[in-house]
């Protein structure tokens, strides 16, 4: 229904994107001017202590960084989850349990079995 609308609305939120910067000993913060700390905005006095806060827009921008596009070295292969679903039959075959056919075909009976009460 409103697939795209939420994305266009969320960036208007007031909470700014921030990132934490590790400052070595002796590094002086510009007094009274946190907006020009080396790493950007720094919250040092939020009620719960320092929090690393990012808004949705900032997180989405990071998605495009080159490192974010490399799959993790240790990403487990779970067909249909971390690799194309077309590999599912081989994966099921590798498992010693011959239960792939009921799993792959949710039937009407199963639907009613797990229907949730509201």
């Amino acid at each position: 229904m409103s697939g795209g609308s939420s994305c266009s609305q969320t960036p208007s939120r007031a909470i700014p994107a921030t990132r934490r910067v590790v400052l070595g000993d002796g590094v002086q913060l510009p007094p009274g001017d946190y907006s020009t700390t080396p790493g950007g905005t720094l919250f040092s006095t939020t009620p719960g202590g320092t929090r690393i806060i990012y808004d949705r827009k900032f997180l989405m921008e990071c998605r495009n960084s080159p490192v974010a596009k490399t799959p993790p070295r240790d990403l487990p292969t779970i067909p249909g989850v971390t690799s194309p679903a077309s590999e599912e039959p081989p994966m099921e075959a590798r498992q010693s349990h011959p239960r792939n056919s009921p799993e792959n075909k949710p039937t009407g009976a199963e639907e009613s079995q797990f229907e949730m009460d509201i």
């Binding site: 990012y54 990071c62 998605r63 974010a68 993790p72 990403l75 487990p76 989850v81 971390t82």
Partner: peptide, 25 residues
Amino acid sequence: IGTFASVEQFWRFYSHMVRPGDLTG
């Protein structure tokens, strides 16, 4: 599936996982 500590590491996992709407079963 895995553990991440940074925004970039999150995307590395997330971008290589199917969306929930595409999960089967």
